[in-house]
Write a protein that binds this DNA or RNA. Structure first.
Lengths: 206, 206, 206, 206
DNA sequence: GATGAATGAGTGTTCATTCAT
DNA sequence: GATGAATGAACACTCATTCAT
């Protein structure tokens, strides 16, 4: 976490540093990202960065947290909306739509979270701190779905949450690889396909 | 691919080199893996490694191929078994069990294949050579399941194959993260849970 | 070109680095010159050199430019002196004398420029930036000599400029190879011999 | 010089080795030439090459000598033809024509000699052994020209020989740089231009 | 005499972090 | 607190030469 020195920085300088860091981490996976380029883009001395953050990882963690907070903000309301009211399927769709919206509004933050997911070295270390928050949202949805009798109660909630998360990333991969070839509409139908499978898969079995 | 010099090496030396490489690539994603550490662990001069392999990537590819061959060996027979005879579910379970067995017998090789899947930079380059073989196996299973009337014909086969692949990786992650905490039995039930969801999800809808 | 970091270096350190580079490039053609040896002679860490110069070629170019600037400084005034006033022969002699003086005052810088001229690989690349300036001086002298009716107008100016340049290098070679065996006087007579041939060779033919 | 082992080699093998060496040294300046590539092209083991030649330089020297012998063979007869009969100018033109013919018939050997001339590191060392032979031919021509009363007796023969040599190289450079843009005819007129200057320059002064 | 694997010092270059000013 | 120069270990890769078989 940043030092108090950082918090007391003039707003615009603080923002410049964050922007530079976000840009760099979005363009390069953690290990390939360069502290040198960050300070250059931010227009601050190298020594200063190390007065604000303990080291590269500390800065990375901070940027990541920012992204997560944004993402949660987008998903806000989803947690509160009762599943009874909207059903798991439509809640989940809203959740995915939120992610999609976030990716469109803040593509760089989104890319960082993504690259983290792919760096095996870091994920174990960093994700231990954040991921639960991410999985938790899905787990809660599942729990409410179960309570509402919509979802099979026998499922292993943490496992299924994880499976769902991985599927959303796989979907994002597919989209990225063929980026451009998807219209907004076809994207939605892609999500719908996945949701249909999911809904079928975990729906209450008679 | 290794030079003939490598093939003619005394068995134990060749094995020492491969072990060192597998260890290194299992511990560090490709870009973080160090040729220096590999030769150090293997106890050979740097120059020698470059007499055996063209470069770092060549060595990586070789190790990867070894892993793939192993994996395919474990999965041998699955492609030929007709889905009509065994059903998609049981074929898929056999497939997963093969992967599980492989992961237990050669955890490091398994980890390497895994880390490749997560390195977006490399995947496009290296996977062009290998991966299709991976997805293809699943796609064929799905196609046979559809032909047998077992699976919903409306599904997007490549997409679903990809989703399934991602779920198996998520599962493997879960296992690796809590390695030790799973008995053989509980592992199987983990897979069964995923399979049940899957089976439900893509089964023919009436 | 060096970074500002280099420019701000304490005079003696900057000079130590330049001396080491000049020595190295004088002793070894560009490709054989070693960055390692340079930093060792200069007594600085390798990383520092790369904070001052982008790469080996950048350093080389800088050293070369230094030599060229020196050389041009020695030759200053020659361009402006009208051939009509002094005649081609005496202008050319002054030009050669300037080169000679430079070679004696800064023999290593002189050797570098020389070795560049002989490295076909580099010359095309580097010389594109510098050399024309070299040939141009001679071409202008020739043109003025022609205008003054002193020199045969039918000559191929660029070719003759090149031939003259090559003769000056050959002369310098001869001097370097038997360095020490020439007194100031005998050197001058060497140049005079060449000039006499040249003067005869390109003088207006009746 | 090669060992007796090399001399006793079957003709075709010896030739293969020489061809490979000539190719390599023609394509790359001495220091950039690779022993590895030579043995590869020749299809012999590395160890063998070192049984035939003491080291890389020994092989280089041998190849160079071969080239020189060829060149002298082309120029044979020129030494014997009396200048009185043909005059310096036409002898020199024949000499240049011989060089041109050699360059066309054995471009690779010619390229090697050329690259040597440009490698400051080597020239001093290697040329000390060969060059005199090269200059000698020109010196003899000059001496005969002087004896015949055609050439100014006051000239410094070794120096002028050297200047002439350097001019031929400069000419060759010009040709190489604009290679293709010269027809056989325009080449000859280029040489003639140089010869005219030379003839004027060193002709007997009254 | 033939072989080709072994060697290891060498190459240019990068970069997170430290620390004196 | 701000600065930016200093650092040096690390990186992937090369290659002429040697030497055991």
């Amino acid at each position: 976490m940043p030092t108090s020195t950082f918090d007391n920085l003039p707003e615009d300088k603080r923002q410049r540093i964050l922007d530079a860091a976000v840009d760099e981490f979005a363009d390069h996976a953690y290990h390939r990202a360069s502290v040198g380029r960050i300070v250059q883009r931010a227009g601050i001395p190298k020594g200063s960065l190390y007065q604000y953050f303990a080291d590269k990882k500390d800065l990375y963690r901070y940027v990541l947290q920012l992204g997560l907070e944004q993402k949660l903000a987008y998903a806000a309301g989803l947690r509160d909306g009762s599943v009874a009211d909207r059903g798991f399927l439509s809640t989940m769709r809203a959740f995915l739509a939120a992610g999609l919206q976030m990716a469109r509004d803040h593509p760089r933050l989104s890319a960082i979270a993504d690259s983290l997911m792919r760096d095996g070295d870091l994920r174990a270390e960093i994700l231990g701190e954040f991921a639960p928050q991410g999985y938790r949202v899905i787990e809660e949805m599942l729990e409410r779905g179960i309570a509402a009798g919509e979802i099979e109660p026998a499922i292993d909630v943490p496992l299924v949450a994880r499976l769902i998360m991985s599927m959303t990333f796989a979907l994002a991969d597919q989209v990225r690889e063929r980026s451009g070839s998807y219209t907004d509409e076809s994207l939605v139908s892609l999500y719908d396909e996945m949701l249909a499978i999911l809904a079928h898969g975990i729906s209450r079995r008679d």
